[in-house]
Structure formats: structure tokens, C-alpha cells
């Protein structure tokens, strides 16, 4: 079971800030494919991966990264701090 979190416009498009996802996805990319197939709002949020970033257990990562041992996945647009 994965804790999946969404921030900024990703959160707005999906309509919730976090959810528990039951998945056998081996990588972030596989998880995204599973989510995309679920519902239109996911397909919309994940339509352009170049506009997205991912963090695994609160560390920036990439879409090829394995999910083995990961508890928390977060998707968000490029950060705009400062």
C-alpha cells in the first residue's frame, strides 16, 4: 500500500491531496500508467510528464525509479519557492 500525495495544480486536477493506492507497480512510471487508466482526472493530471516532478519518501526522484520499499510518493509541478 502506497501513500500517494499531490500538490499544487496536480492536487487540483485530481481533486484530493492524498490517497492510499493498492498497487503492484515496480516503478514510478508503472504507477503513473495505472493511475492514468483509472479515470479521466488522472489522465489529465499526468498528461505531460515533462511538467511533473516526483518525490519518493520526501526525496526528489525520477520516473524510472523503483518503488521497492517506498512508502510515500508525491507528484507535483516544478517548485516555485524563494
Amino acid at each position: 500500500m502506497l501513500d500517494v500525495m499531490y500538490f499544487a495544480w496536480v492536487r487540483e486536477r485530481i481533486g484530493e491531496p492524498r490517497e492510499q493506492v493498492e498497487t503492484n507497480a515496480a516503478t514510478v512510471a508503472e504507477l503513473i500508467e495505472e493511475l492514468r487508466r483509472r479515470e479521466e482526472r488522472y489522465a489529465l493530471a499526468f498528461s505531460d510528464l515533462s511538467a511533473l516532478r516526483v518525490a519518493l519518501d520526501q526525496e526528489l526522484s525520477d520516473f524510472d525509479a523503483p518503488l521497492d520499499g517506498v512508502r510515500e510518493v508525491a507528484f507535483f509541478p516544478p517548485m516555485t519557492g524563494g
Binding site: A55, F76, P78, M79, G81, G82
Partner: peptide, 19 residues
């Protein structure tokens, strides 16, 4: 801080709002 700290700014104005 600008591009590696997880903050996202949203502006609210007379023409609506946007990230």
C-alpha cells in the same frame, strides 16, 4: 530554495487565479 524546495506559489488577482 527557488527550484529545489517544495513550495508552490499561487496568485489571486482581479483577473482570477493561477499557479
Amino acid at each position: 530554495l527557488k527550484s529545489r524546495a517544495p513550495f508552490w506559489k499561487k496568485e489571486f488577482g482581479t483577473d482570477g487565479s493561477g499557479w
